[in-house]
Design a protein around this nucleic acid. Structure first.
Length: 609
RNA sequence: CGGGGCUUGGCGCAGUUGGUAGCGCGCCGCCUUUGGGAGGCGGAGGGCGCCGGUUCGAGUCCGGCAGCCCCGACCA
């Protein structure tokens, strides 16, 4: 590929509205362009890198028995109505009518299509197990796209679906994906990788893992144990709660606390620690609709609306983890409650507790630690007044008790007791054990050897292709530009010709390109008539792993100059040996990258760093 | 959806108290130059996100709306 004809030109400065460095470089180097919020075009170099990522994904998926398919992007609404997600998924699912007035959706994932296929095609246990996968466009109308390709609305996802006769079969295929995913991400150069326990969310099902590339720009917070390596998304991270003091419940008493509407004010005023207080966080919750796959029991709603006021109590030194809270009360959605709504039940923001409020249309959810802690300070539901010696069960009866507190940095691991460390990560992939959530709802079943019908046991597995590209750009760059791993670089070699109109230089350069082409090594050939500084700067910005310079100076020094993008040193090799030297360097790079590939087995624990 | 910010040639920006748009880079042509975004000369390119006001006159003032970015909510 000649750089003189490559579309588009590089940018000297990044567009002002970008902040993430990796994304700025992808824009400056001409890999991608933005069309709208969360909507991007991949340009020639970006497309090449994406294709190479997909090739790695394909190799690893084929290696675990995957069969590639290509499923439609536009679906009739019926299958989504059958699965229940037409109702349970919100506005991120784009719905529209076709010309005949039929409800249609844009695919945000493909469980329904796969399950529909299974329903039509699978009749016998003899046809199972199966693993089907594709690399296909998804559209999710995200409320807030961000950070370039990290969170987009339209994106390419490799999604795979496994179909098995039983749980044991699912476990086997789940484990294979667990290993294959580690191999995929680490082959792409994302070696700071962690598989963490995750919330199945809208996918339904029970067990799920997310694959996190650890990065400060990540959107997810994960808790990693410094002792045993246990890791979980903070949304579901358990931790060992402190032991509450062993005190007998004391009589409740009112105490004047003028102006103390925050825990910090309160502890200062009363001279106590935050662990001696309970705080209330108010939410308005939409309780779960009848969803065939949701295991969480919905609270009794026979006498009230589906929207309720939630009072969530955690100890004053902790924060509410909303995902945990949602699970505990069976909520579809949570949003902060309006003060009017809070006062309507007799509670007072800043001085609230469940003591003495009207409970109609209210769900009181109490963290298990609060429920076990005697004599806490809590609000008296009057401005400037608190209560001492509040005891759960004596002073009010909770509707739900469970773990709703967010794991904090340093909290104790439930498994080994060592400290948890909070880190940020970019979710580049996820795997879900769906079980029979979709097959039961959509009647995808098979006959066993005895002729009995059973729902197919399913798993689903996703990888964000563009998110990998963005993560690698974030992981592999320096102040001059991108530094691609050989595994996914658009071209392995970037040839810089200087004084290109000189016959000796042109001859040497062209000979090298031809020799490499004969061996299947593609070269990005900078044949432009530009100043050396511009060409070197572009070579650094574009980030190909190996740079070769052909110039009067290099020829005078004995041949062509080779320099790895990730190293400062250059070597000059004789013209006659240049092609062989390039191939040696590439082999060396490939060896180094192979050595970094991780293939842990499911159930093995990563070592904490 | 709440809060904040931005919107002026391809990119980055400046535009004073309202007077009819400018700079750097990039681009085109010629010449010089050729190992870290070179230099000279000469050019092209926008009517300032959109709509509606105020005014003799509006990037500049007023009122709407939209798009994009950031924080939060939300979310594989």
């Amino acid at each position: 590929m000649r750089l003189s004809v490559l579309f588009p030109r590089t940018l000297r400065s990044a567009p002002a509205e970008t902040e993430v460095v990796g994304h700025q470089l992808l824009l400056r180097a001409g890999y991608v362009r933005q069309l709208g919020s969360g909507i991007f075009s991949a340009l020639p170099l970006g497309t090449r890198a994406l294709r190479r990522i997909e090739a790695i994904v394909r190799e690893e998926m084929d290696a675990i028995g995957g069969q590639e398919v290509l499923l439609p992007v536009v679906h009739p609404a019926e299958i989504w109505q059958q699965s229940g997600r037409w109702q349970s998924v919100g506005e991120e699912l784009v719905r529209f009518h076709d010309r005949g007035g039929r409800d249609m959706v844009l695919a945000m994932t493909h469980e329904e299509v796969i399950t529909d296929l299974a329903h039509r095609e699978i009749t016998s246990y003899r046809q199972l197990p199966l693993c089907l996968y594709q690399s296909q466009t998804k559209f999710r109308d995200e409320p807030r796209p961000r950070a370039g390709l990290i969170r987009t609305r339209e994106f390419t996802m490799k999604d795979a679906y496994t179909l098995d006769v039983d749980e044991a079969g699912l476990q086997l295929q789940y484990g294979r994906h667990y290993t294959a995913y580690h191999r995929i991400f680490t082959r792409c150069g994302l070696t700071d990788l962690l598989a963490v326990e995750a919330d199945p969310g809208m996918m339904g099902g029970t067990v799920a893992h997310e694959f996190m590339y650890l990065s400060p720009i990540g959107e997810d917070v994960i808790a990693v144990c410094q002792g045993c390596g246990d890791a979980a998304n903070r949304q579901v991270a358990r931790f060992r709660k402190p032991t509450p003091p062993a005190e007998a419940p004391a009589p409740i008493e009112r105490v004047a606390t003028p102006g103390a509407s925050t825990i910090a004010d309160l502890t200062r005023l009363l001279g106590i620690g935050a662990e001696g207080t309970a705080k209330v966080v108010f939410y308005t919750a939409t309780l779960a609709t009848a969803d065939p796959g949701t295991a969480a029991p919905a609270p009794d709603r026979s006498d009230g609306p589906a929207e309720v006021l939630v009072m969530a109590l955690v100890r004053g030194d902790m924060e509410v983890e909303e995902t945990k809270l949602s699970h505990l009360i069976g909520a579809d959605g949570l949003r902060p409650a309006e003060p009017e709504r809070i006062r309507a039940v007799g509670a007072e923001p800043g001085y609230a507790s469940p003591v003495g409020i009207r409970r109609q249309g209210v769900v009181v959810a109490v963290d298990d630690l609060v429920a076990a802690s005697p004599n806490l300070v809590a609000g008296a539901n009057a401005v400037d007044v608190h209560l001492r010696n509040v005891n759960v069960g004596r002073d009010f009866e909770p509707d739900r008790v469970g773990d709703i507190a967010a794991a904090q940095d340093g909290a104790a691991c439930t498994r080994c007791g060592a400290g948890l460390r909070l880190r940020r990560g970019i979710e580049v992939g996820n795997i879900f054990q769906l079980g029979t959530r979709y097959s039961a709802a959509m009647d995808a079943s098979y006959s066993d050897a005895a002729g009995a019908l059973h729902p197919i046991v399913m798993g689903s597995y996703g990888i964000g292709i563009g998110r990998i590209l963005a993560s690698v750009a974030e992981a592999h760059h320096d102040d001059r530009g991108l530094v691609w791993p050989l595994a996914i670089a658009p071209f392995p070699v970037h040839l810089v010709r200087l004084g290109g109109d000189l016959p000796q230089v042109a001859g040497a350069a062209t000979a090298l390109v031809d020799a490499l082409a004969a061996r299947g090594v593609e070269v990005l050939d900078d044949d432009r008539d530009l100043a050396p500084g511009v060409k070197f700067a572009d070579a650094d910005l574009l980030g190909m792993p190996l740079r070769v310079t052909a110039s009067p100076r290099s020829l005078a020094a004995g041949g062509l100059e080779l320099r790895r993008r990730d190293r400062d040193r250059a070597v000059v090799v004789p013209q006659s040996e240049a092609a062989a030297a390039v191939r040696r360097e590439l082999e060396q790079l490939a060896d180094e990258e192979r050595a970094r590939v991780q293939s842990p087995r499911y159930g093995d624990r990563p070592l904490p760093d």
